[in-house]
Design a protein around this nucleic acid. Structure first.
Length: 553
RNA sequence: GCCCCCGUAGCUCAGUUGGAUAGAGCAUCGGAUUUCUAAUCCGAGGGUCACAGGUUCGAAUCCUGUCGGGGGUACCA
């Protein structure tokens, strides 16, 4: 955050003091970028806020504030507009200074260290290995990875973690599904139940099994064999899909290890000791009502098998014990009811549950033309992430999932996605980057010397100034996107930046004097510096999104 | 029944803790090119911000209710 905002804030406060205002009861002074051109560089609604508090006319109040205001040197103009906004216009030097900063910081521009030293864990995907990753998983995978990248860009120490369970009923059914397909392959006639895994990939795995096994006896040992085979094969598949998407996990955490290390039992015992767990109807209940919930919840079924809550709580305790300062869980909307139990569990065990931040994203609904499809791994009516990437490419896939806010349903029209791949805004952004690379190459070919300290004050056209002002926003876009966990702000910003750049460069088509490589060498050098700065910001932004930065298109 | 998310242009979606004339892309229509990459630019049309009340200087945004879509409300995860 550049200090000009702070200087203005201080100036406003001292102006208000002069007016005998109660500074302590002041609403927070909001200084935000003016929404429209002609309204200056920053706008404050302080007069409007105070007017409502004091029941005074906001415009008159704004005028009065201005009269008492001592402007910092870098602010060249101040005026009152609309219902009572105070608009500030910067001296152009502020903008040239921004440009120098971008060029100096290079790939660090936009990065910050406000998360310095914060050990942060991000858990996402966490799909059990029962089938290939689908478009539904894709949204979470890309969101989780990008949230992680944002956290890294703001200085956090991030661990990406994938939690899975290979011991449950799902996995048993999976193993049996493979076994049945195997029996078919060796010529036995089998009855394949409707609610078993229908996908072709099951047959593929069974075929793999045929390479090392020639018969099956339907005993437990066989079942374990097929279950394990399925798990390794499917996990390989999942990992290769993730690699393709540019996602690397630091830790794959197996739920089973919580049982083996006795941590599940220990949690249960602790809850019992604290009288937060009790027996009833043959099951063990967790007193969630103690933590403000409507009813208690079962944590161990009467069969003796824990419900998902118990291992989830034990897992989060494990995370806490590993010393993370922040724990971020990314879940689909179907898990919305489960996390309060986990948070209650943390409180019950004496941990600070505010360290856990749960991000819920809405579902992907898949349509093909007008058909609405309900995705189900079991029934094998899904589109895999790999198929999507084959069709539209990795960059489009990532962008598609990132361009929308988590809280809105993502309507995925397959036919549209295919035809739209040419029109996808990601190309628009990448093209701006490629165009800059091209122009820089051209400058080199023409032998224009690189001036490390060009006269930036030669940049004066509205297009040039717009571009610089847009570059100036980047760091706060990154920090806000991180703070609010809203990755979609970044693609929106990059599209805006690309637009402003394209407009700038387009000007040169009609008018030679507006070209970057214009005959006036000094102007050319100043514009080349502007191009380099834009390239830096586009590249830094795309990198955070995990999208490639082509030098040619 | 109760709880959570969503409802904004023909379509897909933005809209910063309540602020200035509600925006963008796609689609449609009209213009610009012997290009520093037309994967570009400029312009036009297109809106009862689901509906009805309320809060106030000001509401797409906050509150209440209704309708519609999705998800939950398990001794499934």
């Amino acid at each position: 955050m550049s200090s000009i905002e702070n200087m203005l804030r201080d100036a406003l406060i001292s102006a208000l003091k002069k007016m005998d205002m109660e500074v302590s009861s002041l609403p927070q002074i909001d200084l935000s970028k003016s929404k429209q051109k002609g309204h200056g560089d920053l706008a404050s609604n302080i007069a409007l806020m105070l007017a409502s508090q004091k029941k005074e006319n906001p415009r008159a109040l704004a005028e009065s504030i201005i009269q008492h205001l001592e402007l910092p040197d870098d602010v060249s103009k101040v005026d009152v507009a609309g219902p009572g906004f105070i608009n500030f216009t910067f001296h152009p030097n502020v903008h040239y200074q921004t440009l120098r900063q971008v060029l100096k910081e290079g790939s660090n521009y936009g990065r910050s260290d406000w998360g310095k030293g914060q050990k942060t864990q991000v858990e996402f995907v966490s799909a059990n290995p029962t089938g290939p990753l689908t478009i539904g998983h894709g949204r979470q995978a890309v969101l989780g990875d990008t949230v992680s990248r944002l956290l890294e860009a703001t200085g956090h120490d991030v661990t990406r973690e994938y939690y899975f369970n290979d011991a449950g009923r799902q996995m048993r059914v999976l193993g049996e599904s493979v076994q049945l397909r195997f029996q078919e392959l060796i010529g036995e006639s089998v009855d394949f139940p409707d609610d078993y895994y229908q996908g072709d990939y099951i047959v593929e795995i069974a075929r793999k099994g045929l390479e090392e096994k020639s018969e099956t006896f339907k005993d437990d040992e066989d079942l374990i064999y097929f279950r394990n085979l399925a798990e390794t094969e499917i996990f390989d598949l999942i990992k290769s899909t993730l690699v393709r998407l540019g996602i690397h996990f630091d830790v794959f955490f197996n739920e089973k290890s919580l049982y083996e290390s006795g941590k599940i039992k220990a949690v249960l015992q602790t809850l019992r000791d604290k009288d937060l767990a009790y027996d009833q109807d043959g099951a063990v209940w967790f007193r969630t009502t103690k933590f403000g919930m409507e009813q208690d919840r079962v944590i161990v079924k009467s069969t003796g098998e824990p419900t998902y809550r118990l291992p989830d709580i034990a897992y989060h305790k494990e995370k806490m014990d590993r010393g993370f300062d922040r724990i971020i869980d990314i879940f689909g909307a179907d898990h919305i009811a489960t996390y309060p139990d986990v948070l209650a569990g943390m409180q019950a065990l004496g941990y600070d549950s505010s360290k856990v931040q749960v991000l819920i994203h809405q579902f992907v609904t898949l349509t093909e033309g007008k058909e609405k499809m309900k995705m189900s791994t079991r029934k094998a009516n899904f589109v895999t992430l790999d198929e999507l990437m084959d069709e539209v490419g990795e960059d489009v896939t990532r962008y598609f999932f990132l361009n929308r806010s988590m809280s809105s349903h993502l309507n995925f029209d397959l036919t549209l996605a295919k035809t739209q791949s040419d029109e996808n805004p990601v190309y628009y952004v990448q093209y701006a980057h490629a165009r800059i690379c091209s122009i820089l190459r051209k400058a080199e070919e023409q032998g224009i010397p690189v001036d490390s300290d060009p006269d930036l004050s030669l940049l004066q056209t509205p297009e040039e100034m717009d571009l610089i002002k847009t570059l100036r926003e980047f760091p706060s876009i990154v920090t806000e996107a991180t703070r609010q966990f809203e990755p979609h702000r970044l693609p929106g910003y990059l599209e805006e930046l690309a637009t402003v750049y394209h407009r700038f460069q387009h000007g040169g088509r009609q008018d030679e004097s507006l070209r970057v490589l214009t005959s006036d060498i000094e102007i050319a050098q100043a514009r080349l510096a502007l191009c380099r700065a834009t390239q830096i910001v586009l590249a830094n932004g795309l990198k955070i999104l995990g999208i490639s930065r082509p030098e040619k298109m």
